[in-house]
Computed example of a mutant assay.
Amino acid sequence: MAKRQQREIHKGSVKTLDNDYVRSNTDFAKSQYEKKQKVLRSRRMLVFFVFAAIVLAILANAASNQKERLAEKEEKKAEVLAELEAVKEQQAMLNLQITKLEDDEYIAKLARKEYFLSEEGEIIFTIPTEDKEQQDEKQ
């Protein structure tokens, strides 16, 4: 507050000189002020660009992580779809077997084949398989 009062007092009583030295001195002060402002502006811009670079790096990292996770999930999806197809095929085969088992003739034929059951007057002959022949030869 005291400085302001002193300036007001000096304003009316003190007159500035208008010569080359004073003008060059004020020009020098202006140029110094402008240089200082330019340095401050460049520092602000540097801080802004560093901040922007950090934000971009974080975003790029997040995008990369999401891309990796998406690739993993796509791979898992492909595996699950392949498994689903296998289960559907198995289900279709089981449904076919169920329909066959509902037929009495098929059940009789299966019982004769698997359990060596026979109808009246029928004779069952067993033919050794290659595995049994090889086992017999080894013994």
Rank of each mutant, 00 (worst) to 15 (best):
K35P: 01
L59C: 06
Q135E: 09
A57W: 04
E114T: 13
Y33D: 12
L81D: 07
T16Q: 12
K15L: 15
Y33N: 14
Y115Q: 06
K15V: 13
E89F: 00
I107K: 07
F116Q: 09
E68A: 07
E137Y: 10
Q139T: 09
E8G: 13
A63Q: 01
N25W: 12
Q134H: 04
L110W: 06
P128T: 10
Y106W: 12
E89W: 00
E120I: 10
N95P: 02
E8Q: 13
Q90K: 09
F48L: 14
D104W: 03
A111R: 09
T129R: 04
Q37V: 10
K38P: 03
S42T: 10
E68G: 01
K109Q: 13
L17N: 11
S31E: 12
V22W: 13
L17S: 10
I9C: 07
E102Y: 02
V55L: 12
E68K: 04
N65S: 13
V87H: 03
A2Y: 03
R44T: 06
A108W: 13
E85L: 01
L94D: 11
A108K: 15
E75V: 02
A86S: 06
A2I: 07
F51W: 04
V80T: 03
L70A: 04
L70F: 01
K132T: 08
E137S: 12
Q90P: 00
D20P: 12
E119V: 04
F48D: 10
E114Q: 14
F28N: 13
L117T: 09
A57D: 03
E130L: 14
F49I: 05
I107Y: 02
D103E: 11
D131Y: 07
N61V: 04
D18R: 08
V55W: 00
Q6C: 03
R44K: 11
E34V: 09
H10Q: 05
K100I: 05
E79C: 00
V39S: 08
M93F: 02
V22K: 15
D20Q: 08
S31G: 03
K3I: 07
L46C: 03
I107W: 01
K11R: 15
L101W: 06
L56F: 08
V14F: 09
R23V: 09
E74R: 02
Q66N: 15
A78D: 07
D27R: 11
T126H: 11
D103C: 05
V22I: 15
S13D: 12
V14C: 10
E119T: 05
L84H: 03
Y106K: 08
M93L: 05
L94F: 07
L46M: 04
D27H: 10
K109F: 06
A60S: 12
V39K: 06
E34R: 12
A108L: 13
A111Y: 03
F49V: 05
A78C: 00
M93C: 02
Q32S: 06
V80M: 00
N95A: 10
A82W: 00
V22C: 09
K76I: 03
N95V: 05
